[in-house]
Amino acid sequence: MSRPAPGGGSHPASADEPPTDERLDDGHLADEPPQALAAPGPSPGSFAVAAVVAGFALFLTYGLLTLDAVEAEEGPGPAFVPTLIVVLAWFTTVGLVVDAVRQRRAAARRGTHPAGAGAAPTGGTTGAPLQVPGTTEDRTDEGARTDWRSALLVAAAFATFIVVLQPLGWILAGTWLFWGVAQALGSRRRLFDLGVALAIASIVQLAFGAGLGLNLPAGVLGAF
């Protein structure tokens, strides 16, 4: 299967237009691999990673072409290092695609789904730092049981928090964020959670606003 064009979410700097739908697009984009998994096919991981890196490569190329460079007096200018990174980015993208295709062929030949999906043939995932901290079976049987709904709910809760933070103020926005994430993570005591959330947001307001003098938005409370 081929992936659609990389979505906005793969650009780290595309926050100039941060509407929620863009973020959700990204979520949908990433939502595909589980379906892809239904059919025996390539490791979705390799294609997804290739797509993300291709997105970065496109962003880099675009930025480089539109770079309004002031020439440096001596030595390499401001476009020098970005050029190196662009080359590296496309090289990596091609490598990842080739790798994914090869994996798919190998899987097709065997007629099975590759064992340990996502494990690149170049080295496996054992001990890959900072991202396989769970016991291995917790984390590496990717796709199979990824709960996209929960992850998207967390992201949506956070996005809503950002939108309402200044208009509603810290206490209400913070309460919403805590409550929303707790619900997304499967807590079912809705009312009790609301109390906990309100308490946490209030404690933060008192400790950081009143205590340390940090500036937390008052929002609607400031209008009274």
Binding site: G195, A199, G209, L221
Partner: peptide, 24 residues
Amino acid sequence: MGVVLLVPLVGAAAWDARSSGTLS
């Protein structure tokens, strides 16, 4: 019991937010 604690806590926080947010 929890509610008894919650009310003054939230009240104090709201008061603090209000006093820092008002165009004073």
